[in-house]
Simulated assay, not measured.
Amino acid sequence: MTLDALTQRLRDFASARGWEPFHHPKNLVMALSGEVGELISLFQWLTPEEAREYRSDSTLTTNVRDEIADVLLYLIQLADSLDIDLLEVGNAKVDRNETRFPPMQR
Rank of each mutant, 00 (worst) to 15 (best):
E50L: 12
P48M: 00
F22D: 00
S15D: 10
L46D: 00
T59G: 11
D12P: 09
L78I: 06
E20Q: 06
F101I: 13
Q105S: 04
L32N: 05
D85W: 15
D83H: 13
L39Q: 08
D4R: 06
K93D: 08
D12Y: 08
Q77M: 07
L39N: 13
D83C: 09
R96K: 14
D85P: 05
P25D: 08
F101A: 05
D83K: 15
K93G: 08
T47A: 05
G90P: 11
V36H: 01
P48Q: 04
R55G: 10
Q105M: 07
L86I: 09
F101Q: 04
P102I: 10
R65T: 14
Q44H: 15
R52N: 11
L6P: 04
L28N: 01
N97A: 09
L82A: 14
V94K: 10
A14L: 02
L87M: 07
T62K: 12
N27C: 13
D70A: 04
S15R: 01
L82P: 12
E98M: 13
A79Y: 14
Q105E: 06
R52P: 13
Y74M: 02
V71A: 00
G18A: 04
L73V: 08
S58I: 14
K26A: 05
V36F: 01
T7R: 03
M1H: 03
L60E: 08
P21M: 06
D95Q: 12
R17D: 07
T47M: 06
W19F: 03
T2E: 06
S15K: 05
R11P: 05
R17K: 13
A92F: 11
M30Y: 14
L6G: 03
V71D: 01
E50W: 13
N27Q: 10
A5E: 11
V36T: 15
L73T: 09
L28Y: 07
L46F: 09
W45P: 04
Q105D: 05
E35A: 00
R11G: 08
R55A: 15
V89F: 11
S81A: 08
P48H: 03
H24S: 06
I68L: 00
T47V: 08
Q77F: 10
A14I: 00
L82G: 14
L82V: 10
A79I: 12
F22W: 07
G37W: 10
F43V: 08
I68V: 12
D66A: 12
Q77Y: 11
V89I: 09
A51L: 04
T61W: 08
F13A: 09
V71R: 02
L73C: 04
Q44F: 10
I84A: 14
S56G: 13
R100P: 09
V64G: 07
M1L: 04
E88H: 10
A69W: 01
S56N: 09
W19P: 00
D66W: 07
E53C: 04
V29F: 10
Q44D: 12
D12C: 12
P48L: 02
R106S: 06
A79G: 14
E53M: 01
L32Q: 04
M1Y: 05
D66H: 07
D4V: 11
A79K: 12
H23D: 11
R55W: 14
P25H: 12
S81V: 00
D66C: 14
T99A: 01
G34A: 07
